[in-house]
Design a protein around this nucleic acid. Structure first.
Lengths: 136, 136
DNA sequence: GCTAGGATTAGAAATCATTATTAATAAGGG
DNA sequence: CCCTTATTAATAATGATTTCTAATCCTAGC
């Protein structure tokens, strides 16, 4: 990996890793801006693109409007909360889905697959319970 | 399902079903416009939203790309071509992924999952072979 | 049939996420 | 140091989708 580490690039990467979350570009922009107030959102986008291109981080193509970025590039899947959009990692036995168990149309050349669970995260469940209690 | 069927709504639904494909809003707009030239793209979006809300069709969400709409609401998964973005159905044994085989963080309340294969569709493969031949 | 009132529409403008442009700045390498 | 190239901030542009608004269409109730 011959990737020049500029100050901005390094800060973006560090903040993403530090967060241990799956942040969107503008969430990350918000965090980095606290330290480098003059950084531009376009710089964040550009560097997330560069970093994911180099395989240092992963770009998640998951339901929802915005892309999220993952500091963990190991092979794993995700679950996301339909209510607050937060994304968490799940570990699913790799190889669970064998190509043999799938009927494909035509002769697609498969390059990968992605499993995405959908649900309601614990914080949102608590929020909902509280809201329900208040209702009565 | 108490869903008023306006002319536009009916035409949008019919064209989607007729296509037997997974169309984007503006692809569908293009088709419907041939029959109703004065229809608005906003109407297409609004009605696709209404129809998928009522469960008549399904909205396919993949981050960062245009949403596509599926005339088939049966439980099934998809494969999409990284090259031309086309989406096809796949049938994957339901129940293949048991919740038991998944480690979840915290106590997510799971409402569903989605499996998405990625690959290169037959037409794109042919295109690539031809391009390669020309190269020599 | 006629009409009030809500739903739906076309068309345009607004919004949101992302990417491209541009001119200025920084950073290596000789 | 100077030259070349990469990178940046700021801004404009883009593409997909949503919202707004005034006009039109339905549908009951009379």
């Amino acid at each position: 990996m011959q990737l020049r580490m500029t100050n901005q690039r390094e800060m973006i990467l560090k903040e993403l890793q530090k967060s241990k979350q799956h942040l969107t570009a503008d969430e990350l922009y918000g965090r980095v801006k606290k330290i480098m107030p003059r950084i531009s959102l376009a710089t964040v986008y550009r560097n997330l693109e560069t970093l994911s291109g180099a395989g240092v981080i992963a770009k998640l193509e998951i339901s929802g409007r915005q892309k999220r970025f993952d500091y963990d590039t190991e092979d794993h899947d995700h679950i996301y909360c339909v209510q607050c959009q937060r994304v968490d990692n799940i570990s699913l036995e790799r190889g669970l889905i064998a190509t043999s168990s799938v009927s494909l149309p035509g002769d697609y050349k498969i390059t990968g697959y992605r499993v995405e669970f959908v649900g309601i995260c614990p914080p949102c469940q608590r929020k909902n319970r509280k809201a329900k209690e208040k209702q009565r």
